[in-house]
């Protein structure tokens, strides 16, 4: 049976996503973050903690690098001799880039992380055995491992804080890898509602927690397949193509491009789903 299945669908099994596969149907969730609008206020990160039941690990474990912030605000300082606070801080909110060809997916020994039909890089907590190969192979290092059994640790969620835990999201036990999900619980609910009503999810119908909390509206999120959505228009306007190999066409022009859009580490061919707009570029590192 499995052999006949294999032979019948051979060409389907030999398709390589995303470069010679058909594009996503219906949904392909994507994001863009306008760094020129980002003020580094950390509201997105806080919102993420609240929405996704992230454990608050405390000072000591944070120092040891065992923090669990799915959305982290990175600071980069200008290197021109100025002292703090005039050093020219620049901010970059970093979260899982939901790569179309994610380096983490292929290396997981148990297949706990996979590519979903709506273009997410999913993480199956129940399946994870904690080999941490995914994190080792992630160029962005946006995967967070449960070094301790956080839900049972004191002061991760002090008494009254347990009231704000999100019932739609599971808490993760020790030894499991986790990462940004693009608020998959919200996406699923929106998709279910839409399916019930026999339509597709409208643009703007679903927001991620970070997007919702951003005071400057720097984060845009939506369905890249729908050409009229804000995110699709933005990507199109910046001429950032999802499955472009190595370099975007616009960057290959002589003298580069004046457009602000880019994706991080494009040359690694992970095809990230998050587009950033200007601000931090190599000069600042």
């Amino acid at each position: 049976m499995s052999v006949s299945n294999m032979l019948e669908n051979w060409s389907k099994f030999r398709h390589m996503h995303p470069v010679d596969d058909k594009p996503h149907e219906e949904y392909k969730w994507a994001m863009s973050i306008d760094l020129d609008a980002c003020s580094g206020c950390n509201a997105c990160s806080v919102a993420c903690y609240a929405e996704n039941n992230l454990p608050v690990v405390g000072k000591q474990k944070f120092d040891a690098g065992q923090q669990m912030h799915w959305m982290r605000i990175e600071r980069y300082w200008d290197d021109d001799g100025r002292e703090f606070p005039d050093q020219g801080a620049q901010f970059l909110p970093m979260l899982c880039q939901q790569c179309e060809a994610a380096p983490c997916e292929t290396v997981c020994p148990v297949g706990a992380t996979n590519h979903t039909a709506d273009g997410l890089n999913s993480q199956v907590y129940n399946r994870c055995i904690g080999s941490r190969y995914c994190s080792a192979n992630c160029p962005f290092k946006v995967r967070y491992f449960n070094w301790y059994d956080y839900p049972t640790t004191d002061n991760v969620w002090p008494a009254e804080m347990t009231q704000q835990l999100n019932p739609d999201v599971t808490v993760r036990g020790k030894g499991v890898m986790e990462k940004c999900t693009f608020c998959v619980q919200r996406l699923e609910r929106a998709k279910n509602n839409a399916r019930t009503e026999g339509r597709l999810v409208h643009d703007g119908e679903v927001q991620t927690a970070c997007q919702q909390a951003c005071p400057t509206g720097a984060i845009t999120f939506g369905n890249l397949v729908e050409p009229e959505s804000k995110i699709a228009r933005q990507w199109a306007h910046q001429q950032v193509e999802l499955a472009a190999r190595d370099k975007q066409a616009k960057d290959e022009q002589e003298g580069g491009s004046d457009l602000r859009g880019y994706r991080i580490f494009e040359e690694l061919r992970a095809y990230p789903s998050v587009m950033y707009l200007e601000r931090v570029r190599e000069s600042a590192i």
Binding site: S2, V3, N5, M6, N9, W10, K12, F13, R14, H15, M16, H17, P18, V19, C99, E100, A101, A102, P103, E105, T106, G111, N114, H115, N121, R269, A270, Y271
Partner: peptide, 17 residues
């Protein structure tokens, strides 16, 4: 055969088999 049957196991950048 098992890769073909386990259809949910799509890895971006690699074919299923």
């Amino acid at each position: 055969g098992s890769q073909g049957n386990f259809f949910a196991q799509l890895k971006g950048g690699k074919p299923i088999i």
